[in-house]
Design a protein around this nucleic acid. Structure first.
Lengths: 150, 150
DNA sequence: ATATAATGTTAGATGTAGCTAACATTATTT
DNA sequence: AAATAATGTTAGCTACATCTAACATTATAT
């Protein structure tokens, strides 16, 4: 069950909004992604069919356990790529933001892990001490970096 | 006039085949890209419409000046990304091959240039001495590296 | 509680990219 | 040169991702 880039972006957005407010509106997702409500509706149905969210018409959007896990993995991949782009090669924030979205979808787990390790090492973060593993758990160092940037 | 990833792959393939044989067959392109002849036909027509190739039904495929320049740029971008993946982070050949295809399409000129410079520097190639510029000319160093690898 | 506004859904269209199956053209073989 | 093989084209289908416009539902305000 491989998601398309579009589906990944919707799932990612749902996860992120869910961690802010408890009530997610179709309209919010539409605004965030610059899509129409109709498109969001479509996407929601496809994610539901994949078993990644629970949803009944006019109801609340809820991530399933599976959906949550996958969303985290997607966000992690996104963060790694973006971190590399901004911190290692100095891409602009805006470019990195856009490019990471598409790149993350395309990378194999192996390449993503290698990119993560490389980026960590270059940034002087003791490589695998942070426990980063795309198939395992969230990279604490990266999470911390993002916090301190705010 | 931005090409899709699919269009870029077709243009790239046409350019590469053109540099081997002089006669390009629809069937060859189809085989190389693992697509049907019908799909290739489709793609050829879209590239023609973009003014990148000259083609009449049952005729010869010829790149226009514009098409040739763009093809070179696409191949250059592809090579940079692949070089980075294989030589810097040690991705496998196979993964790098596939991933570079998609990544190149998504990168802005700015990010691509930064990736090129970074990769060059890390490989100990005196950065910009090779004259690499995505909007200008082919990177001689990269070209040479590829030659010596064969 | 009803009218209005906000929000969500559905139907039908577009564009891209691929496929299969049928047909057309060109090349090869005998 | 006619038959056969190879090659190329077209039509019509599927799937995805988007859109607009019309409609349905839910929430808000008076």
């Amino acid at each position: 069950m491989e998601l398309t880039n579009s589906q990944e972006e919707y799932l990612k957005t749902i996860y992120i909004l869910k961690n802010t407010k408890n009530e997610i509106k179709v309209t919010e997702i539409a605004n965030k992604l610059n899509k129409t409500k109709a498109s969001v509706n479509n996407a929601i149905n496809s994610l539901k069919q994949e078993g990644l969210i629970d949803y009944e018409p006019y109801g609340q959007i809820e991530l399933t356990k599976q959906g949550e896990t996958l969303a985290q993995k997607i966000i992690e991949a996104n963060d790694i790529v973006k971190l590399f782009l901004t911190e290692i090669i100095n891409a602009t924030e805006e470019n990195a933001e856009n490019e990471a979205k598409s790149i993350k979808t395309v990378l194999s787990d192996d390449t993503l892990n290698k990119l993560a390790r490389y980026t960590h090492k270059e940034l002087g973060l003791t490589s695998l001490d942070c426990g980063y593993d795309i198939n395992n758990q969230r990279c604490i160092v990266c999470a911390r970096r993002k916090e301190s940037k705010k």
